[in-house]
Write a protein that binds this DNA or RNA. Structure first.
Lengths: 134, 134
DNA sequence: ATTAGTGCAAACAATTTGCAACGAT
DNA sequence: ATCGTTGCAAATTGTTTGCACTAAT
């Protein structure tokens, strides 16, 4: 099933803007923020607006196609929906995927219903370690 | 050691504002945001400003006395520094402490140096479950 | 006395809203 | 023809900055 069909299936009209935003997130595993997406897509669709990026991301998140990652530095988005964790560098703020297969079996804690969980590791990324050595 | 002494030890002048912000976070395990802290402290210190709350929180976080918790709903703060995890309700946005003792022994993954990690569970809290039943 | 910290107002950044025009069904 | 979506401009919210005044050492 392609992106267009996935959007339709979720009840979202597959407009060029939505298809491009969604495909951008599927092909760029960089955890971009609104501004990153806007600047890059503007090259392909010069008339695209920030408002549409905001609207689209909201719909994609609501429909479980995209993940929202709030960080101390900025608000990022992730189109990779497989179970994985994140590492955030406290120097450059960049987020990296970690393919640790962490499991948690319970679906309730202290009477709260658990639907999902995510792990955020924090430290200094390999790139910033190298820079700091100088 | 009291809050005043802890601040001094960190090189932060123990002003009334700083002491009160810090003590607020130690005594209110509610994960407040800037506005919550500002509104509550204004009752005690009517002249306190938002700027000072911002400045103080930044210093407390930088000195490892307070934790910053960015969420999809708002930016929260936590003065409880013992190892614990959080649960966030996707209906009301409230954060709850979970005293799960999760461990992760490695201090490096994919060459990134790990300094800390935190786990965020997501779902529907006990209060919102009750409300939704109606 | 010195220097750090406070609090105001203004500036800035990020996000949301209102609405007219557009486009897919 | 209808109704959802887009994109602009304006409004709103959250946060930072510049600076004179104040308070802690």
């Amino acid at each position: 099933m392609n992106t267009k069909e996935i959007l339709s299936q979720k009840g979202l009209r597959p407009t060029i803007q939505r298809i491009k935003v969604y495909e951008y997130l599927l092909t760029h595993r960089t955890h971009p923020d609104v501004e990153n997406i806007y600047n890059d897509l503007k090259k392909e669709i010069p008339t695209i607006s920030r408002t549409t990026i905001y609207n689209t991301l909201k719909e994609l998140v609501k429909n479980g196609l995209v993940l929202e990652i709030p960080t101390e530095y900025k608000l990022c988005f992730d189109g990779y929906m497989q179970n994985h964790s994140h590492f955030i560098c406290e120097v450059c703020g960049k987020i990296f995927d970690l393919n640790l297969d962490l499991k948690f079996k319970e679906n309730k804690i202290s009477d709260h219903i658990i639907k999902s969980f995510c792990v955020m590791f924090k430290g200094i990324c390999i790139n910033c370690q190298r820079k700091e050595k100088k």
